[in-house]
Amino acid sequence: MSDTAPIIALDNVSKIFGRADARVYAARSISFALHPGRTLALVGESGSGKTTAARLIMREYRPDEGRLLFRGTPVGNDSLKAYRASVQMVFQDPFSSLNPTHTVRYHLERPLRLHQPGLGSAQRQAAISELLTRVKLDPTLIASKYPHELSGGQRQRISIARALAVNPEVIIADEPTSMLDVSVRLGILNLLNEMKRQLKLAVLYITHDIATARYVAEDIMVMYAGQIVEWGATESVLGNPQHPYTRLLLSAVPDPDRRFADAQFEDELGHIDEIRRQSAIAQSDVREVGPNHFIRPMPA
């Protein structure tokens, strides 16, 4: 995928819920790596395991199988603080991920205090101003406001600024634009792209909106029923999808060039249940279908 060493890697990680007689693989042998200055997109429908992957990286879940590697070594309790300072998350809901009783300044000051205790008060205020400027908000206007005084897009910018406050190397963004209006969405995506380039961040962009994934990510993974069924370079996977489930997913994305009134439209979803059933079966085989483009083939 890239010639740089990965910052974070998942190595055959599984997460299993349920009891012995009814085991559900929320993640089944997933492996991927995040590289500095690159965005990896993780797409799939609800319940496919996208957020489980995020939670595994954020150490909210421990892997039941496999390993989570940080700079090549497994993450343990002793290295957790350094890990948290390097890996930050931006959540889906900008309305519930900020504390309504605190100002923007408080939200940004707290990570600075915790992770850079050496900073003096004046330095912290300067750092807050710099962070807000970075996410294109005016510090003099915004710093003293409460979350309810801000729009959804502004709040999501605060979430990004808060994540950047600890000078992270990795950002996990779980559906960061799905609750925003279309006209605001592009600004947030552009901001993510800019941060990635300027700060050499490694970004995991989780979404069900495949068009936005194409806009921000160099590489993409398609997940279904806990398995990554197809992955590789974004243009290759989206331009020449090889797994039947990826094709199904792509055909369902609203496309103004293909109208419902057109005749050939109706059969397209004809095999939907069969494709879903087959894609959910555990498959250890991996087939390379092109340069940096892989699938787990469905059973014949």
């Binding site: 279309v182 006209s183 592009l186 068009a211 936005t212 989206l238 994305v253 060039d257």
Partner: peptide, 9 residues
């Protein structure tokens, strides 16, 4: 509005 929507193709 159209310009602010990333496209799939």
């Amino acid at each position: 509005l159209w310009a602010s929507m990333p496209r799939l193709r």
